[in-house]
């Protein structure tokens, strides 16, 4: 079926973009929960736990997201689980994002001066109270900019799930390309849609961090 690329093609891409957003949001929520736990354990946990988490972070940061995705999608199904593309996508994106976000948040927690811990100690606060009322509120403020910045990486990372045929924005572009054979127009539109999602986030992240900073990512 050959049709030409035009306004009639937009619904396909918009539908894909919606899934990109859903995937990004799910990943952010899941990775956020794990990252908070990991960041806290990385700072406060017993030594073996701290080492374990540090090892996890090192290992995942040295592995391509695509390999994690293939492991989840093709690999684990052989273990007797069937992983639909959505599940494989969320699981691998979460594993991946957690390794970076936990690291970012650990840095934010460690940036709070040790005197703040001691002042809370001297006021007889328990560890959960110190975290809840003194450390985490301050760490949260520092983390906002980098966290929003990382959200941009998550959105972009979701694009690789196209390679296990999960129909998000990039995959929608591929499908549309197969129908129209107008790859340049199609992928330019896809890129523009990513840009529309990501640029405001990047801008806000830089605003939160007070000026331009060098960011890094894939």
């Amino acid at each position: 079926m050959i049709q030409s690329f035009g306004f009639s093609s937009l619904p396909i891409l918009l539908h894909g973009a919606l899934w990109t957003l859903i995937l990004s949001a799910s990943t952010f929520v899941a990775a956020g929960i794990f990252s908070l736990i990991f960041a806290l354990l990385r700072v406060l946990g017993p030594r073996p736990v701290r080492l374990l988490i540090a090892g996890y972070i090192e290992l995942v940061q040295a592995t391509p997201l695509l390999i994690l995705l293939f492991l989840a999608y093709y690999g684990l199904s052989f273990l007797g689980y069937y992983f639909p593309p959505l599940a494989a996508a969320v699981i691998s994106l979460t594993l991946y994002a957690t390794a970076f976000l936990a690291d970012i948040w650990r840095g934010c927690i460690e940036a709070i001066p040790k005197q703040q811990w001691e002042a809370a100690d001297a006021l007889a606060m328990s560890t959960p109270q110190k975290l809840r009322y003194v450390i985490l509120p301050q760490a949260f403020r520092i983390s906002l900019g980098p966290t929003v910045g990382f959200l941009v990486q998550i959105v972009k990372n979701t694009s690789v799930t196209a390679l296990i045929s999960f129909v998000e924005l990039t995959r929608a572009g591929q499908l549309l390309n197969n129908m129209t054979f107008q790859p340049f127009e199609v992928f330019l539109t896809v890129a523009a849609m990513y840009f529309i999602i990501c640029y405001p986030l990047s801008y806000y992240s830089e605003y939160l961090q007070g000026g331009k900073r060098a960011r890094s990512s894939t």
Binding site: Q115, A119, D121, A122, L123, A124, S126, P137
Partner: peptide, 20 residues
């Protein structure tokens, strides 16, 4: 030491107020 610290106050050289 928490029950002890409830009864012993400490003030530091660098104030250490909670900035938030």
């Amino acid at each position: 030491l928490r029950s002890l610290r409830k009864e012993v106050g400490m003030v530091f050289q660098s104030y250490n107020l909670f900035p938030h």
